[in-house]
Each structure stands twice: as C-alpha cells, then as structure tokens.
Computed example of a mutant assay.
Amino acid sequence: MEKLKQNSRDIILQEIVSIPMVGMSVRVLKFWGFLYERNWRLYFSLSLTTLLNVTQFVYMTVTREAVDIIIRNAYMLVLWFNTALRGYLLVFQTAKYEKFLSDFNGLYKSLKNSNDKVITEMLKDTNTLGKNTSIINMALGLMTVLGFCTYPIFADTRMLPYGSHIPGIDELVDPSFYIFYVFQVIITPIGCFMYISFGSLVASLIMFAILMSKALQHRLRGLNEDIDSSNKFLLMKIKWCIIYQKTIYECMSASTITYVFLVEFLCFGTLLCGLLFLINIAETTAQLTIAAIQISMIFSQILTLYWYASQLSEESGKVANAAYDINWFSIDKPMQMNILMLIMRAQSPCVMTVGNVYPMSLELFQSLLNASYSYFTLLRRFYD
C-alpha cells in the first residue's frame, strides 16, 4: 500500500514539474528538500539560514554604526527573516502544500484536456507568463546575490555582506572576518533559491486562479448556445459552473501564506520609510545607489503579488457579468435561481488576504506607499 502511494505521488510530481508555470519553482524546492522529499540539503540550508538570522538579530542589538549602515542591514535582516519564515512554513505544512499542488494538477489537466481553443490559448499564455516570471525573478535574484557578495570587496573599509555578530568574536579581524565572509557567500545563493522559488510559485498559482476565472466567464457566455437544448442538459452545465466557481474560491482560501504576506507588509512598509530617509541623508553616490536598488527590490517583490492579486479579484468579479449575459429570461425559473446564486457569489470577489484581514490589492499597496511616505516626512522633520 505504501509503495502504491509513493508511486502515485511520484507520478503526480512528474506531472507538476512538467507544467511550465510552476515547474522551475517546484523543482528547486524539491531539490532543497522543502517539497516531496526530505534530504540533507533541507537541514543544511535551514540551519545555516537560521544561524545567519540569529547573528543578524544580535548585530542589530549591539551595533553602533552609522544610520545608513543600520538601515541597510535592517533590510537584509528582514529579507533573511522572511526567507527563514518561508522555509519553516514549507517544512511544517508540507502536506498542505503538496495537497494544494495535487489539486492544482487536477484542475490544470481539466483545462488542458478541455478541447476548447479559447481556453487552450489562454492556458498557453498563462504558462508562458508564469515561466518567464520565474526565470526573470531567478535571474534578478542571482544578480542581486552577486552584488551582495562582491560589494564588500570594493568598499573603502572592511565590511561583511550582511551585518552579523557572535558575542565574544570580532567579525572584522582575521581570521574570523574570512570565516564570516565565506559563510555568507555560501548561504546567499541558497537563500536566494529558497526565497525566489517560493515567491514565484505563489505568483504562478495566483495566475492560474485568474485563468480559471477567465475560463469560467468563457463557459458561462457559451451557455447561450445551449439555451435550446434540453433543460436537464442546460441545468447540468449551470451547476457545473457553480461548482467550478466554488472550487476557485476554495483553492485561494486554502492558501497558508496569508501571515507571510502580513510580515512582508509590515516589515517592508517600515523599511521603505527607512530607505527613503536614507536617500535623504545619503552623502555618497554608493549610498544613494544602494538605497535606490533596495527600494526597487521592495517594489518588485511586493508589486508583482499585489498586481496579480488585484487581477484575480477583478476577473472573479467579472464572472457576475458573464452570468448576466446569459439569456436567463428564456430559461426555466429553477435555472434562473441557480444563475442568480452564481451572480450573488461573484459580488464578493475571490481575494488573497494579508493576515486574513485585508484583501491584497493595488489600493492596499498604494496605502502602504502613502503611510511609508508620511512616516518618512515625519522622520525627516525630526532629523532636521
């Protein structure tokens, strides 16, 4: 029995990694042991990431360096804390993520085998978008890794890629400096793979939910062609659309990353304020460049998810319009009531949430920017 379960699991895994929109992310997470298997790489990466994060926290409590260095290292601290949080979330909720991916695989196959040219074309576009997003995110992540690791080489004073401290050890003297530096160079690409793959996987799954909403709209509008069919056949199709709509909402509500979004929202909002302040007090081109790059990274990390989350809300809301476009006045009352149920459900669009409280949207992203800028102006007034 166990062997059959393992074989079935392996088959599902092979099918998932062959899906372009999620294949790269799942392969990376599997290689590092976060999904579908446990291996030494999982314990190696998590233990090193945790160690680095602890030493970063210690550094932030004891450092007396300049404000610009503290802000830069605070950004690195949040980035690594978020990386560790994502890793532990995958470890402790592996079963939920694997079930979610298994359900996703079934829904993907149902669209792929639909023999509908419109849906097939939409699926092809989503695969291309998801794959390209993963590749671009990974490329940008690796370029950032290269920048983090080489920046200390060109600095005027001896420094590490990330502020890190172990009590009783001076990390800036030989040979501890070289040990710290090599350790951080080794852990940086590992953290990049953990962080970027997780984010790309989430973005691709939101893209797929958008695709499902568009497919539902297409099928609802196609019901007009079946108005003259038997009532039983038409009722069956309407009920299928209701079940499919429910499936979209259930898939998104099953997400276990809402509190990761909350941590990102709070931390990156605070850091954005700090980085704007850093630009204001920057005295050198290097300081200004670093702050600008880090702000760009915050925008790219948050805006991508909020953009697609807003699209999901919009497309799931359009289901009501598609249902209303059916010639509902020409069908029997029981079927009209089913269509009305579908429209009423679509009035509350499918949304991703931040901390199970706030819906992820471009409006919330704008609120984050406004709040960060307000606190920045207050901080600058006190500093001046």
Rank of each mutant, 00 (worst) to 15 (best):
T258H: 07
N280W: 12
K246E: 14
I257A: 08
F208L: 04
K232V: 10
K214A: 01
S253K: 12
T270D: 07
S253P: 00
F208H: 04
I210P: 02
Y259H: 10
A215C: 11
F233G: 00
L211I: 07
I281H: 05
L266F: 13
S255L: 12
I242N: 04
F268L: 13
F208M: 04
I243Q: 12
E264L: 09
L234Q: 08
A254E: 14
V263Y: 15
I238R: 02
A215N: 10
S229C: 09
F265H: 11
A282R: 01
M207D: 11
F268W: 12
L275K: 02
Q245M: 09
I242Y: 06
Q287H: 06
K232Q: 14
L205Q: 06
F268R: 09
M236L: 08
Y259D: 10
R221T: 08
A209Y: 05
V260L: 13
M236K: 08
G269Q: 08
Q217S: 06
M207V: 01
V260F: 14
D226Q: 12
C251A: 09
L271Y: 01
N224A: 11
K214W: 07
F233M: 12
E264M: 07
F208V: 02
N224L: 13
A282F: 03
E264R: 03
S253E: 15
T247S: 09
T284L: 13
I238P: 02
C267S: 15
L266K: 06
A209K: 02
R219D: 15
S230L: 11
F261L: 10
C267M: 15
I279P: 02
K246S: 11
C273F: 11
F277I: 10
A254W: 06
E283W: 01
M236R: 08
Y259M: 09
I210M: 12
I210F: 04
I257V: 12
T285K: 08
R221S: 06
M252Y: 03
L262A: 13
S230A: 13
F208Y: 10
D226V: 00
S230N: 14
C267A: 15
L272P: 01
N231R: 11
C273G: 06
G222D: 15
F233W: 10
K214V: 05
E264A: 01
M252A: 00
K214D: 12
N231V: 07
V263E: 15
Q287S: 09
I281W: 06
L205G: 03
A215K: 08
R221Q: 12
L262S: 02
E283Y: 01
F268D: 05
F268T: 03
Q287P: 00
I281V: 13
F265R: 02
V263T: 14
E250V: 00
T258Y: 05
V260C: 05
N280R: 09
T258C: 05
C251V: 04
I242E: 13
R219M: 10
R221P: 01
C251K: 10
L266S: 14
Y249D: 07
M252S: 00
I281P: 00
T247C: 02
T258A: 12
A215S: 15
A215E: 13
